[in-house]
């Protein structure tokens, strides 16, 4: 059973939940209030929604051997645009559509640099990571813009039994799962990520696929940015979505999707995002300074990477030839 790729992440999640329940016995309680659910677990879901959403977009990007560092900055831009529009007297739906349209453009930009110009993904998205926050501050003119719009408040803080934010994130996750696994998109993404050369020779439109995943990642970041700013009724260009790209990458990696591209697991990403959010909550509840959460994250990153590293398995595996016997026979017959 330990062979299952999600064994360790799920074990970690369960362990963290048990730890929380021990430290804080009311952790697992769920109250019903005004037709909505409240409680420790619900809080984890609500606070983890933006990270999960961005991680879903990041999963597809990483599956194509890429990475998108700009998602945090894009999230900040989305919040800034929406709040500025509302603060200037605009209505919330238009504000959100406007923000998301800009995020799609930013995604197009990233995708263009990666798939057409051919710049390494880390570097291509670093440009927007750096300039993007400046752009967000340009929109907010360096102020923290507070808004009070009942409609806008819903996306981050609203409830329909469960927090709306987590419903959106889970909805997107399911939609992506349905779209990529129901059509051939998932297979083509994995094919491009595993072996770009062979995919090109098989006639796969790699450029278009790579471009699309960056646009999707930008869109996810935009929605996440709306959630973050809606949750606090404000757009903070400096701090909204700060380091969320790192959390998202971490969630994807914990979920078993390799940074080298290829096979991806959306379920794994879900588990990974929950592990990270639960870890954060746990650190709060056991009384460690909240900022020191980073130490725990570092330990998790290193542990996951070392567990995934082929070198580690070489070290711990008993030395024997891995080839099945019939392969060997056939290879020998080869001239």
């Amino acid at each position: 059973m330990t062979r299952h790729p999600l064994f360790w992440p799920v074990a970690a999640l369960v362990g963290l939940i048990v730890l929380n329940a021990v430290v804080n016995p009311s952790f697992l309680e769920v109250r019903i209030q005004n037709g909505a659910l409240y409680g420790g677990v619900v809080d984890i879901l609500r606070n983890g929604a933006p990270t999960l959403l961005i991680a879903v977009g990041m999963t597809l990007v990483i599956a194509t051997r890429g990475i998108d560092l700009s998602v945090g900055a894009v999230a900040a831009i989305a919040g800034a645009i929406a709040c500025s529009w509302i603060a200037a007297g605009g209505d919330a739906p238009t504000a959100m559509l406007l923000a998301l349209a800009v995020c799609v453009l930013l995604g197009l930009w990233n995708g263009f640099l990666v798939s057409v110009v051919g710049i390494q993904p880390i570097i291509a998205t670093l440009v927007l990571m750096t300039a993007g926050r400046g752009g967000a501050m340009l929109v907010t003119e360096g102020q923290i813009i507070t808004v009070d719009d009942p409609v806008y408040r819903q996306i981050g803080a609203g409830f329909v039994v469960l927090p709306i934010a987590i419903l959106i994130s889970l909805g997107v996750l399911l939609a992506v799962a349905a779209l990529t696994r129901g059509t051939a998109l998932g297979m083509l993404v994995e094919s491009v990520g595993t072996n770009p050369r062979a995919s090109r020779l098989a006639g796969v439109r790699s450029r278009r696929i790579v471009w699309t995943v960056y646009v999707f990642a930008g869109l996810c970041a935009g929605v996440a940015g709306l959630m973050i700013s809606s949750n606090v009724n404000a757009a903070d260009a400096n701090n909204a979505g700060l380091w969320i790209e790192m959390d998202a990458i971490l969630a994807v990696v914990i979920g078993g999707t390799s940074l080298a591209g290829g096979r991806y697991s959306l379920t794994g990403t879900l588990v990974g995002a929950l592990v990270i959010q639960t870890l954060t909550t746990t650190v709060y509840s056991i009384g460690v300074p909240p900022d020191a959460i980073l130490v725990f994250k570092a330990v998790v990153v290193i542990a996951v990477c070392l567990l995934q590293s082929p070198r580690t398995s070489e070290l711990f595996r008993p030395r024997r030839r891995a080839e099945p016997a019939d392969t060997r026979a056939q290879e020998v017959a080869a001239p």
């Binding site: 059509t183 051939a184 998109l185 297979m187 083509l188 994995e190 094919s191 595993t194 072996n195 050369r197 062979a198 995919s199 020779l201 098989a202 006639g203 796969v204 439109r205 696929i209 290829g262 096979r263």
Partner: peptide, 25 residues
Amino acid sequence: AEGLIADLTVRDNLILALQAARGWM
């Protein structure tokens, strides 16, 4: 280097070119 998509299944590898020609939709 130019043929197999090592991580994918026999099924996916076998229909890859056909699928690429049809488009993902």
